[in-house]
Simulated assay, not measured.
Amino acid sequence: MTDATLVLVLNSGSSSVKYQLIDMADGSRPAAGLVERIGEPSFPADHAAAIGLIGAELREKGLGLDSPRIAAIGHRVVHGGRYFSRPALITDRVLDEVRRLVPLAPLHNPANITGIEITRALRPDLPQVAVFDTAFHATIPESAARYAIDTELADEYAIRRYGFHGTSHQYVSRHTAELLGRSPESVNVIVLHLGNGASASAVAGGVCVETSMGLTPLEGLVMGTRSGDLDPAVLLHLQRVAGMSVEEVDVLLNRRSGLKGLCGDNDMREVTRRMAEGDQRATLAFDVYIHRLRKYVGAYTAVLGRVDAIAFTAGVGENSAAVRAAAMANLDALGVELDPALNAVRSAEARLVSTESSRIAVAVVPTDEELEIAEQTFAVIRRTDE
């Protein structure tokens, strides 16, 4: 087994590449950064150029892509379909399967594939691992995964609930259990990942049994620019009555909806600032956001039967005391008691914000998807070396 302990985590997006270099021996991060605006004038021409810049930045720290201290590269891959229910050591066959899943994630998987192809060409000797956003949700039962449409049609076109933000939900549910001083197998957690994209999950004993995002990341909670749950007939109505094309409807639901569609701002900080000034559109947007969130908390309480903790994470979940307070208000019947003083504290640490007498703990657990990807990557290569 190699003594190398560094894992390079790459998140290749359509116009950016984020990276972190994480030392699995001590959790330190010798390097991290973001190359963005790929393809624009005066910026990297393509992903190969972007990864070349990352390699140069790493070399400045004495840790180039050719460094023998790097044990593996872990790649975030958005969609693993039904084929991938766990991280996978990247081979030609694995890459072919990821390509086959492009129709399910046409905006994300191609960029993920590009990052993999470039780094494999640069370091063909180095183990590389794909960690899938969908994998943690592969355990949800068929009753939750199936949409009530024609079964043969659904199977032919792989239409079902897949869920996303899986690395975040897995990390946060596990660390919530640790915060409670219990094992993940003994804890039922509702995880609320609230960023510009937002999703909820119900995790029973460390296993995901339900999640809010579906075939795509559009379903579920109200988000920054995405609508979340919607009567599907709205799409037909807009096409028939408003004369909108499929592309126009797609842009509407993904980029011009959610908080932005309701009040013109997709940043929760701006929404709450406007609320404080008495802005009615911002207030309505906030209320719609909170109403949907509370519906999911109630629904997932029913799904789990017993809830030990509700965990808030991601940009909004970690930083907006107003969102947490509104979402948890008047849930006494469920056994939720938020401590206003604890909730108001800003901290980068995982913490409880509920009262000592609350039957359901309310936690704020900063997510760390890069560390989760690194840990899963390192675990895969250690198993391979054994």
Results as ranks from 00 to 15, higher is better:
Thr272Leu: 03
Thr211Leu: 00
Gly55Arg: 05
Val9Asp: 06
Ile51Phe: 01
Asp155Trp: 11
Asn196Ser: 14
Arg174His: 14
Ala350Asn: 10
Ala200Ser: 09
Arg76Gln: 08
Ser227Ile: 05
Val241Cys: 11
Val307Arg: 05
Ala344Leu: 13
Glu40Tyr: 15
Phe132Asn: 10
Ile159Lys: 06
Gln280Asp: 14
Asp265Ser: 11
Val297Asn: 08
Leu126Tyr: 12
Ala105Trp: 02
Val336Phe: 06
Val323Gln: 01
Arg382Gln: 15
Val364His: 11
Ser143Tyr: 08
Ile22Gln: 09
Arg306Trp: 05
Asp250Trp: 04
Asp265Met: 02
Phe84Gly: 06
Val234Ile: 14
Arg256Met: 11
Ala111Gln: 10
Ala49Ser: 13
Gly64Lys: 07
Ala25Val: 11
Val345Lys: 14
Asn266Arg: 12
Gly181Ala: 06
Gly55Ile: 03
Asp92Glu: 15
Thr211Tyr: 00
His75Ser: 05
Val271Tyr: 02
Leu334Glu: 12
Gly52Trp: 03
Ser257Asp: 06
Thr211Arg: 00
Ala202His: 03
Gly214Arg: 02
Thr2Pro: 13
Ala348Phe: 05
Val191Pro: 03
Arg161Lys: 13
Glu117Phe: 08
Glu318Phe: 06
His193Met: 01
Ala333Trp: 14
Thr367Ser: 09
Arg86Glu: 15
His79Gly: 04
Ala56Ser: 15
Glu337Phe: 03
Val187Trp: 07
Arg346Cys: 01
Asp133Gln: 14
Arg351Met: 06
Arg359Asp: 13
Ser168Thr: 11
Gly228Tyr: 00
Leu304Asn: 11
Ala4Phe: 03
Leu371Thr: 11
Ile113Leu: 11
Val209Tyr: 09
Val362Ile: 15
Leu262Glu: 15
Gly317Cys: 02
Leu259Cys: 09
Ser42Asp: 12
Ser227Cys: 12
Gly205Pro: 05
Lys295Pro: 04
Ile54Tyr: 02
Met244Tyr: 10
Val207His: 06
Gly298Arg: 07
Leu235Phe: 12
Asn266Gly: 08
Ile381Phe: 06
Leu63Thr: 05
Ala321Leu: 06
Arg161Leu: 01
Ala31Ile: 08
His137Leu: 01
Phe84Arg: 02
Pro141Phe: 14
Val191Phe: 00
Leu218Gln: 12
Thr313His: 01
Arg240Lys: 13
Ser168Tyr: 02
Arg182Phe: 14
His137Ser: 03
Asp150Lys: 13
Val17Arg: 09
Gly64Tyr: 03
Asp23Glu: 09
Gly163Ile: 00
Ile113His: 07
Gly261Ile: 08
Gly27Asp: 07
Leu194Glu: 02
Asp231Asn: 07
Asn254Tyr: 00
Val336Gln: 05
Met24Glu: 14
His193Ala: 00
Met244Ser: 10
Thr167Met: 00
Thr134Ile: 14
Gly335Met: 04
Val222Gly: 00
Phe43Val: 04
Leu153Gln: 11
Val303Asp: 04
Arg146Thr: 13
Asp46Ser: 07
Arg93Gly: 11
Thr167Ile: 03
Val365Glu: 04
Ile22Arg: 15
Val271Asn: 01
His175Lys: 09
Val17Tyr: 12
Ser245Trp: 04
Ser358Arg: 07
Ala32Cys: 12
Met223Asp: 02
Pro232Leu: 01
Arg59Gly: 11
Val222Lys: 00
Glu349Asp: 10
